[in-house]
Nucleic acid binder design. Structure first.
Lengths: 145, 145
DNA sequence: AAAATAAAAGATAAAAAAGTCTTTTATTAT
DNA sequence: ATAATAAAAGACTTTTTTATCTTTTATTTT
């Protein structure tokens, strides 16, 4: 459904929202450990999101990643689009290049509905909305150890 | 959402259901042209489905691919499972290995619903059910040329 | 039986995705 | 100023997916 890049990216962003609060920042090492991802890989992903202005960072001692208010309100859909493009939101279920209402594949209508629900769900969820439940341990960003 | 392998596989199976009727068979060349796929690639995919007994074939002159009654009634979900496994039906949206009701990722509940709808839709659709509409030109298996 | 046909099988190649390693740049603390 | 810290950038490797090419096997027609 989502690429590894995107899965890690979403987990990392949610993790940053949880851990970089009150002007604090969170380092790449801790992020990688906190979401069970390869350190250098998630670094590259966050660089990309940084370039797009979706996550903030500061170098040097006490540096790390954090989110501005906009970033905390940012939807999961924004991250998915930034990392995977909008194939998931618009693509044809059978891979036809020009599948449309006027030139539909056999499952065009059904898939449209599903894509819309995925879209609605991802547009509706905010990066910052899971912080409390993660704190209290009713949600998780890594495998059970 | 689906791999290229799976997209081509579904299109090919639906195409075979449409074209190999009344004891006739359809050749790999025509299938490839009919669904806009690389010939040798779709050949390999159909070999795999053949090994699993999902599609039938005969070698030699007048040979080709066809479906028995079971194959024509086979659901799209069966093809997806045969080619892509059941990640799509069971996997975690954020890629957590042990995501579950008891150890949920932030979007566990939402994604479960969506996966179930995808499952229902793919289980409900039969390979052979699109034949008429393909014949009459209200559905398509390849790009507008 | 021989030639032609068409899928099966297997080897190889190209492209994309995932992952790793090294060097550079910016910032802070001493 | 210097050393230490941490992200940015870029090069590189591995794995997986996608795609292609060649040889073999089965079947049919002549």
């Amino acid at each position: 459904m989502l690429s590894k890049t995107c899965e890690y990216g979403l987990r990392a962003m949610i993790f940053i929202a949880q851990h970089a609060r009150d002007g604090k920042r969170i380092g790449i090492r801790e992020i990688a450990v906190g979401i069970d991802s390869p350190e250098h890989f998630i670094a590259k992903i966050l660089q990309e999101l940084g370039r797009k202005g979706i996550v903030q960072s500061i170098k040097g001692p006490n540096g790390g990643f954090y989110l501005d208010e906009k970033g905390r309100q940012c939807s999961l859909a924004t991250i998915v689009r930034a990392l995977d493009g909008d194939e998931l939101f618009n693509g044809c279920g059978l891979g036809l290049p020009h599948c449309s209402h006027l030139h539909p594949c056999p499952i065009h209508g059904e898939f449209k509905k599903i894509r819309e629900e995925i879209g609605t769900m991802l547009e509706g969820a905010r990066i910052g909305e899971f912080t409390e439940k993660l704190d209290e341990g009713s949600l998780f960003l890594k495998r059970k150890k």
